[in-house]
Design a binder for these strands. Structure first.
Lengths: 235, 235
DNA sequence: TTATTACTAATTGCATACACTTTGTACGCA
DNA sequence: TGCGTACAAAGTGTATGCAATTAGTAATAA
């Protein structure tokens, strides 16, 4: 949508996105055009435009004459989101199995092994999460279908604000890693159907876990937002 | 996104959408904020907002300092779009097989039979096209997953401007109808996997036909836009 | 004639102003 | 005290104006 020569609306939009993914802005938080305008040193016009775009993308909820808020997903909405995402990722994986270049495949394997190492050496769980994100992203992008990629990543973005809820339950990471094992095996074996089924089940389970965790912890969202979440997620 | 109390931007947005789907606005046509504002009797502000939203939805292409144009899809982009759409519809059909209510199923069958009658009696092809659209829509909505439905319909919208290109090649409608036969049979038989495969192949073939037709007729788009296309497509 | 350049007109991006809607608060009443 | 109402403060939706950029046009050179 935006090209070179980013307009101020693009800049503001990106800044707000970052805030949402960083947790500076939590689901349910209100977005006031005036304050944002002041904060970014622009008028309300480009801020409004940015908000409109984010609303269209589903990251923000906007109703006429009411202030925009960062989209809040109740458990059932989260479930739907993950169900749809799992289908999209499954479709992408199916296509990627045949379409990924050797270079893309080796990148994927590389990420996967880095993750394994991180796990073995009990590295930073945040790093592990980032590697997992990259893993999924590489598979999705491997399908070489821009529409499918954009659509999938748009949905993936919508769960990102909830990522910090990710439970680090005992054995969860190992389970994740062995899931990834199965996925990567299917891809390298050229078994597209298996790749689809594996990643679909995997993503669905991730969603299930997250959903249940949130459902069980209905306390104010703010409690779960640690002040220090510095890592920027590349989009 | 919009609720009751539609704002002027919503009104304008809807009007532009209609123009695009009616063919008043063809792919490649420029959208001037000033003229649109004058035409709708509002200022440029709500027009800009409407355009921003449509751009985000993919119906319009917008670059900084250049005027917005109705999105143009080259054959390869169309192919990608249909590939993604076929996966989405396939996923929806898979879920719908188990989730459609008896009432929804009977509605679907009803539409299908109306289409059969239209075909047998050589009715208006436009009516047949509308029934086909409704057929797909009912299946998609039958999955009861709002995210998946919205995502799928968003992509379906993006091909709508090209719908008038639809070839009425000999036997094409019969083929379409027998495809639908197979799909509906799978759904009523409760065979989710078959429903998925059938609708996926079907949608992919529709896209292929359209794509090839457009590729073979590279003349100015305007040639293919008959003046009389009065039917409004319900969204 | 065709291509290139300079210039003008049209158009976009943004700031500002204002009316209308909503939200927060204090008051009055039960 | 609790609830509803009225008023005040804040915020959103839209109109308008202006500067920066693009698009159209005419003049010039090849």
């Amino acid at each position: 949508m935006m090209d070179r020569d980013p307009t101020q609306a693009d800049t503001v939009r990106f800044a707000i996105e970052s805030d949402i993914f960083n947790g500076q802005l939590a689901p349910g938080d209100a977005l006031e055009e005036g304050r944002l305008a002041a904060r970014f040193g622009v008028s309300r016009t480009p801020v409004r435009e940015a908000i409109t775009q984010l609303a269209q993308a589903g990251l923000i909820t906007k109703r006429a004459h009411r202030r925009a808020v960062v989209a809040e997903l109740d458990p059932s909405a989260l479930l739907e989101l993950f169900e749809a995402l799992s289908e999209l990722e499954g479709a992408a994986a199916f296509l990627s199995t045949a379409r990924m270049s050797p270079n893309e495949k080796s990148k994927l394997m590389n990420i996967h092994e880095q993750a394994a190492t991180n796990l073995r050496k009990q590295g930073d769980p945040n790093d592990y999460a980032d590697l997992g994100f990259a893993f999924h992203q590489l598979i999705v992008r491997g399908c070489h279908n821009k529409v499918l990629i954009d659509t999938t990543e748009l949905l993936a973005l919508r769960v990102l604000p909830y990522r910090r809820f990710q439970v680090v339950a005992p054995g969860r990471l190992q389970r994740n890693q062995s899931d990834h094992d199965a996925i990567i095996s299917a891809i390298f074996a050229g078994d597209a159907a298996a790749a689809r089924d594996q990643i679909q089940r995997h993503t669905l389970e991730q969603g299930d876990a997250l959903m249940r965790f949130i459902a069980l912890n209905k306390t104010s969202h703010a409690d779960f937002y640690p002040a220090s979440l510095t890592k920027e997620h590349s989009l």
